[in-house]
């Protein structure tokens, strides 16, 4: 049964393996130089070439796409194609029970997906490691490993995504019995989950840290004009003072601790922004003395900035928690897939 699974699967497996290995080789070739830079200079980012930056973002794209591709092209056709072609009638009437048939197919495919994505994430994680120590979540020129975009492309979570995508694809395929709709639905669901988890779930997988800070230029990240048009109140963001924290909430509070906008006088206090009429984006800080005066007045009136964030040290706890979450959901899905294949398919 393993032989049959492998025989049916080897072409697709070879294609993905080739891409994964090629990418790993590129990373292996360019990685040591990055490590040298990190060992020699404190400010790694000033010494990165455009090529390094491209590779960094390519890594993110590859890691983001790989589980989706694997779910759509490995998972969805796994059962659906057999049902569509009628070959399940051949496979299920050999001396192998349906349960074992599915277990073998699903097991081999999920393991292969885990291996392929495991290789990729290992390569990307290793390659990016020299950058992590130098990054801050906002001052760094490349996103730190705890920010949503980077987090999903490092460590162990991609393996969970890949396994989940395969099991989801197989289950959807078993329910829909048609390859193409199963692929489309798998694609949509995987993308939705990949957006939903960082948006609503990940931040709660480990305890957050909080800070309430006074305003000063050191902590200031940016001041922006709200999005309700001209005359809308200004907003300010500050940093956590640490490197690699994932800021979840960056809110100005008043003396009683309630969330509030900056007072109206603050805009007038500030020096004029460089490009008048710009209503979006952070405004560059200038005029140090005037700024300090404005901040002092804010502090004196009891305004503070309240920060909620996932500290950088939570990277690995979050990774393991999210991996466990994905594997648990995959397990439940697989259970449903087995039940469906045994009881509901013919």
């Amino acid at each position: 049964m393993i032989w049959l699974t492998w025989r049916q699967f080897r072409a697709q497996a070879a294609a993905v393996a080739a891409v994964a290995v090629a990418f790993a080789i590129v990373l292996a070739a360019t990685g040591p130089r990055l490590a040298d830079i990190a060992a020699t200079y404190r400010d790694v980012f000033d010494h990165l070439t455009a090529n390094d930056r491209h590779l960094f973002y390519t890594g993110i794209v590859v890691m983001a796409v790989a589980p989706v591709i694997i779910g759509v092209f490995w998972g969805a056709p796994l059962v659906a194609r057999e049902l569509e072609a009628g070959t399940h009638r051949l496979a299920w009437t050999q001396s192998v029970t349906r349960t074992r048939w599915l277990a073998t197919k699903l097991g081999v495919t999920a393991l292969a997906a885990a291996a392929a994505v495991g290789l990729l994430t290992f390569a990307v994680t290793w390659w990016s490691q020299p950058l992590d120590a130098a990054l801050s979540s906002t001052h760094g020129s490349l996103p730190s490993r705890l920010t949503p975009v980077s987090f999903a492309m490092r460590g162990v979570v991609p393996v969970g995504y890949a396994v989940f995508a395969v099991v989801l694809g197989a289950t959807v395929g078993a329910v829909f019995r048609r390859t193409l709709p199963a692929m489309a639905v798998t694609l949509a669901v995987v993308i939705f989950v990949q957006i939903a988890v960082p948006t609503w779930i990940r931040a709660h997988l480990a305890p957050t840290a909080e800070q309430t800070v006074m305003f000063d230029r050191e902590r200031l990240d940016g001041i922006s004009i709200g999005d309700t048009g001209p005359g809308s109140p200004l907003r300010m963001t500050v940093n956590t003072g640490g490197v690699g924290n994932w800021v979840l909430s960056n809110q100005t509070v008043d003396a009683s601790g309630r969330a509030t906008d900056l007072p109206s006088w603050f805009g007038a206090c500030l020096p004029a922004p460089p490009a008048p009429g710009t209503t979006e984006g952070p405004v560059k800080v200038q005029g140090p003395d005037t700024m300090d005066a404005c901040f002092q007045r804010l502090n004196a009136e009891g305004y503070r900035q309240h920060l909620v964030y996932q500290p950088a040290r939570n990277f690995w706890p979050l990774q393991w928690a999210e991996l466990a979450l994905y594997l648990a959901v995959s397990g439940l899905l697989a259970g449903f897939c087995f039940w469906w294949t045994r009881r509901r398919l013919s």
């Binding site: 072609a85 070959t87 009638r89 051949l90 009437t93 029970t97 074992r100």
Partner: peptide
């Protein structure tokens, strides 16, 4: 199809004789 032993007792040539192309 109760178990593998039962499956081994019965051979089946399905309609349209499906094979893996």
């Amino acid at each position: 199809a109760a178990d593998a032993a039962q499956l081994a007792k019965v051979g089946f040539v399905a309609q349209d004789t499906p094979t893996y192309p």
